[in-house]
Design a protein around this nucleic acid. Structure first.
Lengths: 190, 190
DNA sequence: CTGAACCGTCAGTCTAAACTGACAATACCG
DNA sequence: CGGTATTGTCAGTTTAGACTGACGGTTCAG
């Protein structure tokens, strides 16, 4: 009687299919494939897993599994779990998608958005100074360049505001909140 | 008198600094470096540019410039411009950041979000079928897996809704709209 | 119709990132 | 403590993706 074995294979396939989809989504977000797959596996598994189980299950080296787990912990979406009386370290994933999405956005803001905004300000400041320092016909060019950079910076600020509002509202209910806003402002009337 | 030349060098540096920042931002979005740099240069330049000028200005091969332009046109953020009496083809970028952001999101939705959502549905459907077909103790596992996949799919749908509302609202005013919504729904009360 | 100027393409090369696997470090057992 | 099981690290290798430059096609001036 290998019905149980068949079912186990089926479970495996169910998992695999989801893991691949998640992995694609991760890659769209700039997250590497292995990291995405490990995350998906942990999300799907009811109990915490250890490094070797993960590596074996996903057919990757344990070095890769270990590094992926490190990344996921740095992103704050995976927790280390130690069980008394067990030498192994286990890992488990946050189970609520909105929670980890929120966490991810916050982390991305910190790591990526803030530094690049600083560099943008530097560039804008340099352009402004250059425009003021110049004379003659080239001055106009410099001022035009500065205007365009400022225009872009304004856009970037609004984008960051958008992120901040999202972070302030918290998880869940986002789409509904957003939709209500859309009804209140049917066209472009700010 | 090389004051004009100095100013030209300054303009060049102003441009370069901005181009590098934009290029970083592009890479955060998964857009490749050269494409980002070409886009930034065209945004900054008041008049349309031809392939060779772009290649020379950015110190890249004209093949690379040509491919990058092709990408940008496919994304809908760069236009081809032909001038009567001139053999060259010129290219110019959309000048309003919100407009091209909007265009980019719409295109990304079409290319990336829609296909991956289909695959997600397939995975969810397979999981559901597997759960219903199974008997015995493994059935519970399969149903649990299906539940988690559905939970993730629900989240993904809300995310897509969010994109759709953004696209419906149109450019500009986004942050303000969003902020107003936040005031109306201070916590999680949908 | 010919030649020159230019753009688009793609095979081959180069570069950056991911992955592996051996070794180091650590935790725990008897 | 010594031995063993396990995780963490990182140099070297592999792989995926970007870039170059030569070629072919197209357009236009003469």
């Amino acid at each position: 009687m290998n019905e149980a074995a068949d079912n186990r294979d089926t479970l495996r396939e169910v998992q695999d299919r989801f893991i691949e989809v998640w992995s694609e989504i991760s890659q769209l977000w700039g997250v590497n494939k292995s990291v995405g797959r490990v995350h998906a596996l942990l999300y799907l598994t009811h109990e915490p897993l250890d490094i070797d189980s993960i590596a074996e299950r996903l057919q990757i080296s344990h070095g890769n599994a270990s590094t992926s787990i490190r990344d996921l912990m740095a992103w704050g979406v995976v927790r280390r779990v130690t069980r008394p009386g067990d030498r192994k370290t286990f890992f488990e994933a946050e189970q609520d998608p909105w929670t980890w999405f929120h966490t991810t956005i916050r982390e991305r803001r910190r790591r990526e958005v803030v530094p690049v905004m600083e560099r943008l300000h530097e560039a804008a400041g340099f352009a402004e100074g250059a425009g003021k320092g110049a004379k003659g016909p080239e001055r106009k060019r410099l001022e035009e360049a500065h205007d365009k950079i400022e225009k872009f910076a304004d856009f970037a600020h609004e984008f960051v505001d958008l992120i901040d509002v999202f972070l302030a509202i918290g998880h869940g209910r986002m789409a509904k909140v957003f939709r209500t806003a859309a009804k209140l402002f049917p066209k472009e009337r700010g």
